[in-house]
Amino acid sequence: MKIIIAGGTGFLGENLEEYFTEKGDEVYILTRNPKRSNEMYWDAKTIGEWKSLLEETDVLINLTGKSVDCRYHDQNKKEIYTSRINSTKVLQEAIDLCAHKPKIWMNASSATIYVHSEKQLNTEENGIIGDDFSMNICKSWEKEFFKTENEEIRKVALRTSIVLGYNGGAFPKLRMITKLGLGGKQGRGNQKVSWIHIEDFCRAVEWMIQNENMKGAINITAPHPISNEEMMKKMRKQFNAPFGMNAPVWQLEIASLFLNTETELLLKSRNVYPEKLLKSGFQFLYTDFDKAVITLAKS
């Protein structure tokens, strides 16, 4: 296959590139800082030479967007919004000009689109979508993505949860704080963590490419969310940490100022279930958090 990954130099993009390249696929990366022969410059706002790459492409994956791991002041909020909307909009404009359009377009979204929920399991069909900054970003993102319908293009919005991999994402940070003795619960510890192993993430993307019935918004998360308290307990056990200091909300608020981030990333309960993936017949390699962590710890 010919695969284009826009914004593909981050953790997810790098792993997808490696996964598909090893299978013999041709992978091109759209990035602001091209350094390799398979990378092409784009500013995520305007049509450029990269448009020619889209012709006769099998798969387009857009992962572009400013990281939400920052303080939510006005400037960052604006950049989080515009980076997602503008990149989606310009890709649609370029696709409309193509004589031979991509067969499938997968656009990043987030499991954060659902409300804070400790008991309600949010599926694609019955998930409750609320109204705050993060949820509204996701809603606007998906609205822009699905606004234009092209009969020949299958569109999938990837409502991705926390992706665990040894070389990026949340896992290295969790491992570090656990080894430092800070691996206790954050806040009350009741908040649910929806997670997925990076290998299952890549396999799910491949599955959706191959399964022509998969379209619309799809939850990309393992089927068993875990509470924050239980997750940290399992991390301590895996890394032989004799204790883990709990972090009450007030401490997290102070720490988030110094770490230039927001407590929402730790305290929001993401209780999400991959109903569409499971109904389609996808089989996870890692449904159990213990197994995922053991594998990553050995990497």
Rank of each mutant, 00 (worst) to 15 (best):
G127T: 04
N86Y: 13
L252V: 03
L16A: 05
E22T: 12
G24R: 06
E56D: 15
E93A: 13
T148D: 08
K276T: 14
I254M: 14
Y166Q: 11
K237W: 09
S140N: 15
S256T: 11
E264Y: 13
S256M: 06
K268P: 00
Q191G: 05
T221E: 09
D74T: 12
A99E: 15
L30C: 06
M1E: 11
Y28W: 15
S227G: 10
R71D: 09
S67W: 04
K279A: 13
E22D: 15
N107M: 09
M135L: 10
I162D: 09
T178G: 00
Q120A: 13
G10Y: 05
A44M: 13
D43C: 09
C138N: 06
L54G: 02
I5R: 00
L257E: 12
K291P: 06
W195C: 02
F145E: 00
N219C: 10
K279E: 14
Y28E: 10
I294A: 15
W105I: 06
D131L: 09
A222G: 08
N150C: 01
Q92C: 08
F282D: 05
G13K: 01
T123S: 14
S194C: 11
H224I: 11
T287Q: 14
E230L: 10
R236I: 03
L12Y: 05
I198E: 00
E26T: 12
Q92R: 11
F239I: 02
E18H: 12
H224S: 11
F133Q: 06
I128H: 13
W50N: 02
L267M: 09
L121V: 09
I153W: 02
F243S: 12
R32K: 12
A241D: 00
M232S: 00
N190R: 13
L158T: 03
G184V: 01
K78H: 09
E151A: 14
G183N: 00
G184R: 00
M208C: 10
L296M: 09
K279F: 09
A292L: 08
Y166P: 06
M235V: 04
L16R: 04
F171E: 00
T178D: 00
E118V: 11
M231D: 00
E39G: 06
Y286V: 05
M135S: 14
I4Y: 04
I61F: 02
T46W: 07
E49S: 15
P248V: 09
N62C: 07
R175Y: 11
T46G: 07
D43A: 10
L158Y: 05
I220E: 02
V193H: 08
I177V: 12
Y273L: 05
K147F: 08
R175G: 03
M232V: 02
